[in-house]
Design a protein around this nucleic acid. Structure first.
Lengths: 254, 254
DNA sequence: CATCTATTTTTTGGATCCAATTTGCAATAT
DNA sequence: ATATTGCAAATTGGATCCAAAAAATAGATG
């Protein structure tokens, strides 16, 4: 597990910092699915007690990012192919809709902001940043809709499939298509063609879903053939679990 | 505040019991919006410490049912007119869609189950039960879709507006229309007409929204005129806060 | 040697205790 | 009389401690 110290604005509570760090780590795929999240372990990484860690884990479970069993702890939730497909269909319903609201109200500033993110996404060479830039681009378009509930729901849904999406982006040559599709969506928004922008967004999401499921089918078939990672992997191994948010908070050794 | 001891299946943890009780109480409108939820107070009602209460409140906040401020505690979230409208539009997008999936796969058993709930809703005289029966009817139709993520998202959205919906059902003569519309949706499902069922569901939700917003406009206008409940009401008054889940769990006076 | 059982070790859920912060109220100054 | 400052009570966030449950380990038995 590897956590970067997400800079929360105005010195938030410990549990909030931990929550954001874990959420980011799970979305990034820095902690693998099925890996156990030990309260005590995480607590020591942040130099806090288990209490704020438990609050963070509770929130993560409520969002579906981890699953917990009583007295057995939390593990990063593993989504089945069906669950992944359902969430993509869900996004393919919501995101075109919010974009439809947005296009009519979009200012030139908002369009310029989206254009910058599209460009940053297209020119970024570090694969680890593609996920964030992809999000930023779409959110820039969606924010203008003035539909905070839609946006929050979309964000939660995207969180759950983000690490799959990022893995697929990095491993296959899907980036070229993503770049082209982003440009198409952006052009439609500039032309104020809400219907077209919505249709392209829907195709963008469903196309990514198809290519992701293809990739996962092959990967998971390989896994079970090799007997590599079984369903109930407890993930005892400390894989990539050093170099945490090294001893941040806390005013000393308690 | 008034909480009924929601019977959780297999002896869940304390925090889960408290979470369900509070969620139900908020949805039912037994705790009013803006009312403060004191950790210590709730803890004593259930004969537990504040720890499981805090977990329950954390989960409720994650679902948007309460809002908290650091060191200031949690209050039942008050939704603005715009927020309520947005959530209804959200439901009006999702529920027809999940019903479309469902109609094709619906067994006679499922239809019979929905029919029974529609009947129970139509004949129920106790206004306090209308909310639950309404939910049961719609969920019976939606379950067959095999879309758990859609269903959970819909449920969360409905939770947030449920108390407004229930209040409106009880106070106005919207019940007759609801009965008729339920029957129409059910008939369309029996006829396997997915498009019609979806359209009727959308109208059902948007119609309820209109009548609810009408009702709320009048009510809130009245409130501010009377200076009755101000925006930032701390709700110190113990209104309806006895007769809680009286001294349930816990193995004695600690 | 495999298998079952008893015991130790981990780990979680919850209780109690403490510190940080806010809020209510009284005394004081303007 | 009103605004301001200085406590005291109430309340939350977090630490530490304890009990219950599960996993790991060792020992007994066939």
């Amino acid at each position: 597990m590897k956590l970067k110290a997400t800079d929360i604005g105005q010195m938030a509570s410990a549990s909030e910092v931990i929550f954001e760090a874990l959420r980011e780590a799970i979305a990034q795929g820095d902690v693998k699915e099925g890996e156990a999240l030990r309260q005590d372990h995480i607590a020591r990484m942040f130099n806090v007690s288990r209490i704020p860690v438990r609050e963070a884990l509770t929130r993560l479970e409520e969002q579906g990012l981890v699953s917990t069993q009583r007295y057995r702890g939390a593990v990063v939730a593993r989504l089945s192919i069906d669950e992944i497909r359902e969430i993509f269909e869900f996004r393919a319903l919501l995101e075109p809709e919010i974009l439809r609201y947005s296009v009519a109200r979009m200012t030139d500033d908002a369009l310029e902001k989206a254009r910058r993110f599209a460009r940053a996404f297209a020119t970024e060479t570090d694969g680890a940043r593609w996920g964030d830039l992809n999000r930023s681009f779409h959110y820039a378009l969606y924010e203008e809709a003035g539909r905070p509930y839609y946006l929050q729901t979309i964000s939660t849904a995207l969180d759950r499939v983000d690490r799959y999406l990022r893995a697929q982006l990095v491993l296959t040559a899907g980036m070229d298509r993503a770049r082209r599709e982003h440009q198409g969506i952006l052009d439609a928004c500039i032309a104020r063609d809400a219907a077209l922008a919505a249709r392209l967004t829907r195709d963008h999401i469903l196309g990514a879903c198809d290519s992701l499921l293809d990739f996962l089918d092959r990967q998971r078939a390989g896994e079970t053939r090799h007997g590599d990672v079984d369903a109930g992997d407890t993930g005892t191994g400390d894989t990539a679990m050093r170099d945490m948010a090294g001893g941040h908070m806390g005013k000393g050794t308690r």
